[in-house]
Nucleic acid binder design. Structure first.
Lengths: 200, 200
DNA sequence: GTAAAAGTTAAACAAACGTTTGAATTGTAG
DNA sequence: CTACAATTCAAACGTTTGTTTAACTTTTAC
């Protein structure tokens, strides 16, 4: 932490604290202390507390959508593409667990300054899912599931491990030891693929 | 709202506001105003702001676990029991969407006063899932998925619709019209059942 | 070397925070 | 009617909140 630039120290400390105390529950003085930075530097770097949150959310969605575009686009089979996407997305979630938690916990909140931001990204994601997943799926199996349903299902399922892990660590030892990331990816991949393509 | 008792007005207003602004983001004066109650009544009824949150979370977990115990227990097949559970749980989530959102958004936060509460309930739930879902599944298919992984997957999947709905409403019209609850239940039921019992 | 820019600081701002107090009001038994 | 308990109230408590100001230091550029 000492070798980082002050602006990045603030960013990382914010991610850490927002994930654990929530955005509104984190004070800027606590944040400044953890980042070892003067209080005024936060406003100097990010304009405001909400500006800092926006930058965190922007970073997450940018990467998440980049992964979706990269792994879901192309001429491969839906099965192959979804397998690739889930693997990449879960690995990214794991590498940035705190950012993921900030995104999820702030997802339903209706702050007018933040909500347009989230809606913009969600719309972008829905468009990709609709084109690359829902449409091919409908052609293959006849099942029409709208992107506004498919996207949340996929994201929630992939995030479930990390959303609950702070609690699960406390209830039954370290969760990391019970199911590693490889197994987790395999579980939800077969769950999703077999579940979607199954006819009843 | 006018015909309710003041204590319940406070409770419902708290659920409404916590779901939209977050727990830490909601001020007691704003809450008192919405509940049409004097500020001091909140402390009078619930002791403290955190006491109010505890009561909300308690109410959710109590009902959620009651549903799990009722629908998952018994001699029916795993398939039948899971179908029943998902149907009941999703319906409950829908009837109490705001409470569900409060629970999810407060899930990762590590307030020492609240965290034991959540861990207690999570442990109870994990025990039920382990006994009624994971064990039968292992006997049927040979797949061993620990409850600390299965529980979060199930809950997240069932909650996905409601976690994202505040955003999805804004991005593509009313989500309620695109996939109704019946279809949603059917989608995630077959997704989960076919996905779990599938051999690769 | 000097001037402009970028970075950093302590101090202060009004506003909002959760909580408490003690008096006033209302409801309930005896 | 009286007395006791439950409820409601306005007011104030001391903190903490996010943000801004103006002075100061360091870095950058010519």
């Amino acid at each position: 932490m000492e070798k980082m630039a002050p602006k990045e120290r603030v960013f990382r400390s914010a991610v850490y604290l927002f994930a654990r105390h929530g955005f509104a529950g984190t004070g800027l003085r606590e944040l400044a202390a953890r980042a070892e930075v003067n209080l005024a530097m936060i406003s100097y770097f990010y304009g405001s507390k909400k500006g800092l949150l926006k930058e965190i959310l922007d970073g997450f969605f940018e990467q998440y959508i980049a992964i979706a575009e990269k792994e879901l686009h192309g001429t491969d089979s839906l099965h192959t593409k979804l397998t690739r996407f889930i693997s990449s997305a879960v690995r990214y979630f794991e590498s940035d667990q705190d950012v993921l938690l900030v995104m999820i916990t702030e997802l339903p909140h209706d702050d007018p300054e933040i909500i347009e931001y989230k809606a913009k990204w969600a719309g972008k994601m829905a468009k990709i899912i609709g084109k690359e997943v829902c449409k091919p799926l409908a052609e293959e199996t006849g099942r029409t599931i709208p992107a506004s349903c498919m996207g949340p299902m996929l994201t929630s399922l992939m995030a479930s491990r990390f959303l609950f892990s702070p609690l699960m660590k406390r209830v039954s030892g370290d969760i990391e030891n019970s199911v590693n990331t490889e197994s987790y990816i395999e579980i939800i991949t077969t769950l999703f693929l077999q579940g979607l393509t199954a006819q009843e």
